[in-house]
Design a protein around this nucleic acid. Structure first.
Lengths: 343, 343
DNA sequence: ATGAAAGCGCTAACAA
DNA sequence: TTGTTAGCGCTTTCAT
């Protein structure tokens, strides 16, 4: 192990003071080209590396952003995280990753992020912000941006769930379907609740009566019901309806749609010949199986969240914004026009 | 924003010296129960939070581990990362995530991780370690463990690719196939090269001649060829062989297998009725589509890597180990016994 | 058992 | 332009 080399060693070797070394390291203007060159040479030669934590202590900021994320069984998050990671890196920040497996862990991860000096900003994914946290945020003066989540006084980046669900359902209606089922996740999840709303609105604005028994949720509550099994279970319930079963479905996430399709195939239904389906998310999987779905621009959402956080970091006075992306219909192979047997 | 509260404030409020405060904070034995109680009370009351970076500077270690990971378009990594994240958290370390998109970024991320004091250890995923890095690792005295990668003098956790590929191929042979194709990734990737070896060995130890034209790689080189398109392309090549096309395939990753299956279906082949296929990895996707595959225990690999790093952190003198997991065949729905038309 | 004091390696204000 | 010095907030010796 090489003896630790600090700015003192550099200063001595270059025959200057540590202040000067620090200045060239930080690109301060007040250094003659010659001294600068000399110091730089020594820095290179001795392979000097600044001590990050000493810098952070002295500078009073951490150059790091933490992401608190419901841990990624869920590809939706992975995709967002990619955007986050790349943007953070390109801005010269560090990314500290905190995974939470359930709501009870949220507070402890927040506490970690709130330690003085530890992170400059926090990115918070998808979960409902614990109420007790918000005042502490203000107190600590740490900016936060929410992704796929909403809180009045905090910046947020999310998706227009209502509109997306509306469009998806509307697409099915335009294909000629009247009886359209919905497979939803748990209503305690805001996106799920909103998507239900959009579905309902689309129905009603087309003069179709909303029927509660045409909306089902699986019993598996993992990931708030956004999981394959739940989709499978819900579809099994529909299949039990027999002749009453809808011929078209809007499903609140691709992953559930996959489970639903599996249930269908196992029971001798073909997609889209016998039933049409549109999902939500457009995870990579969706293109693999040719699922028609509503695309959320996940990567971009991640990028933009970081951008926003950075902006707020340099100007804390910024007004709160709530950016929402409009999901976009991606037509692939799971829908077909309704048979003309009058609705 | 609350005035920063430091151990000085605590000390004053509790009527003790800062040394004592530090001692109770760090659970040093030499404190009377009474003083300890008093200090603790003040700490609670004033919501004291230690300044992480000051601690790290004073303690000379960072309590953080960095993971350098070819960024996760690839679910294989996500799964490993889950194991890594949970284990790191449970050990009380922080996880600093560095994504690299191509080999040229590896060095710069390493440089970041090598900054004195910045991280206590490094987890390095899947890519070939740049040669210039290794000496610098020694120099910095930072322990590293490799995941899904190998270097003689460094701890590594990986998968027995040769054996896995052997078993997969053997399974197909036992099903009665003689002409078995392989869809591989780029040979510059060590896992790909090893899997080819295993495939070849299985053939030869069963008296089947290895034929180079039965091994194909797609042209898409993203992720070293471990991607869906490459699998699709390779299968298209096989399909062009017409009657010469094998009826069974070993594919070097699940994601490629998915592409290959798509190509097959598009061209009127059914799986497994017309062609059998076994993949490699067992990513979540595999179970969704019922792919028979070789399972790599990804989550566990991540966990174990962290465990090992932690062990080495507390005892740097540990001997180098190379832990290898044996992939396990998961039989699902993409293989069937060969038709008895004599080979 | 406890307080005082000396670092940890850096930045930034202050003189010169 | 440059060197010197005083912090940043903590840990850890060293006296007491």
């Amino acid at each position: 192990m090489t003896p630790k080399i600090t700015i003192y060693e550099i200063a001595k070797a270059a025959g200057v003071g540590i202040g000067t070394v620090s200045r060239v390291l930080n690109n301060h203007p007040n250094v003659t080209p010659e001294t600068r060159a000399k110091v730089k040479e020594v820095v290179m030669r001795m392979h000097y590396q600044p001590h990050t934590y000493a810098q952070r202590l002295a500078r009073r900021h951490s150059q790091t952003i933490s992401a608190i994320i419901p841990f990624f069984t869920n590809y939706f998050f992975v995709e967002i995280l990619r955007g986050v990671q790349e943007e953070i890196t390109s801005l010269g920040y560090d990314l500290m990753l905190f995974g939470v497996n359930n709501i009870s862990q949220v507070e402890s991860k927040f506490a970690l992020s709130l330690q003085r000096g530890r992170v400059d900003g926090i990115l918070f994914f998808s979960m409902k912000l614990p109420d007790r946290i918000v005042p502490r945020l203000r107190e600590a003066g740490i900016p936060v941006v929410l992704i796929d989540s909403y809180y009045p006084k905090l910046d947020s980046i999310s998706v227009a769930n209502i509109d997306g669900a509306y469009d998806a359902t509307n697409y099915l209606i335009n294909l000629g379907y009247q009886r359209i089922g919905m497979i939803n996740a748990l209503l305690m999840s805001a996106p799920a609740a909103e998507r239900l709303q959009g579905y309902r609105r689309a129905l009603e604005s087309n003069g179709i009566r909303y029927a509660a028994d045409l909306v089902k949720t699986g019993v598996n509550t993992k990931q708030d019901g956004f999981n394959r099994e739940a989709g499978y279970e819900a579809m099994m319930e529909f299949i039990k309806m027999g002749a009453e079963m809808p011929e078209a479905f809007f499903v609140s996430s691709d992953i559930q749609a996959l489970g639903a399709i599996a249930a269908l195939l196992e029971n001798g239904f073909r997609v889209p010949e016998d039933v049409s389906m549109v999902g939500f998310d457009d995870i990579e999987l969706a293109s693999h199986v040719g699922l028609t779905t509503m695309r959320q621009p996940m990567y971009q959402m991640g990028q933009m969240a970081v951008e926003r956080l950075a902006a707020r970091l340099s100007d804390p006075g910024l007004e709160v914004i709530h950016k929402t992306f409009l999901p976009e219909l991606v037509v692939r192979g799971t829908c077909r026009r309704a048979k003309v047997s009058a609705g």
